[in-house]
Amino acid sequence: MRFPIWVRPVLFILALLALWQIAIDLHPGQLLPGPIAVFAATGELLQHGLLLKHVVASLFRVTWGFVLASITAIPLGLILGWYRRGEWAFNPLVQVFRPISPLAWIPIAILWFGIGDLSSIFLIFVGSFFPLLLTAMSAVQNIPAVYINAGSNFGLSSSDFVARVIYPAVAPRLLVGMRITLGIAWLVVVAAEMIAVNSGLGFLIVDARNAGNRYDLVVAGMLIIGIIGLLLDLGMRSIGRIKYFQWGD
């Protein structure tokens, strides 16, 4: 007997949830909630409209930080990647900044922007900027020389050359890099909200724990974070599936 393709994964998830519930039931007096409690907590969040408020706050910050990082890092990276001396000049610095956890910037963010939206947008910007810069640099450097030669043969102006050869040639790689970076931005916003602001999904988690050990809300918040992150990733993937971008693989 053949099942539709989604049946087995769903069964697997249900089995995990059942195991989880049984494990919780076997240890009464536990801080951690079972799936039923988490489900109820999600309903509670939905009812008060709190969830929507937190989700919108988080998405708002991610959008701003990510967009700002994209419009600065991508053009800069394309330029640095195109000129070999540019890469030499900036690569070592970028390599030092990149491994610094965006959260380590929190003291500086608070010093410059105070506690609030701007701080967490700054942290997302820092977290997205360096990966995007490196992606853009390597995307330009990996344009097959034959496309550049062929393109430069038709007497295009420099702006035409960028728009009609460089940009389409780097687009597939850039898109992959942007998808990965959006994932990073989503990780960072949640972490930043746990420290620097008083709204958003990260704040929801920390607040639920600190104000009365509501672990059912904590886990519900985590799952919502996971699902939204997955949706963001799927959205970026579906852009990558457009034929125009697809030749890269």
Binding site: I5, R8, P9, L11, F12, I13, L16, L31, L32, L103, G183, W186, L187, V188, V190, A191, M194, L201, G202, I205, V206, A208, R209, Y215, V218, V219, G221, M222, L223, I225, G226, I227, I228, G229, L230, L232, D233
Partner: peptide, 24 residues
């Protein structure tokens, strides 16, 4: 195919968001 959806949901959760659970 069976396990992937679970991984895909857990993956985007910031490790930092696990802190309350880790402390428990």
């Amino acid at each position: 195919q069976v396990v992937n959806p679970v991984l895909e949901i857990l993956r985007p959760i910031s490790p930092i968001a696990w802190i309350p659970v880790a402390i428990v």
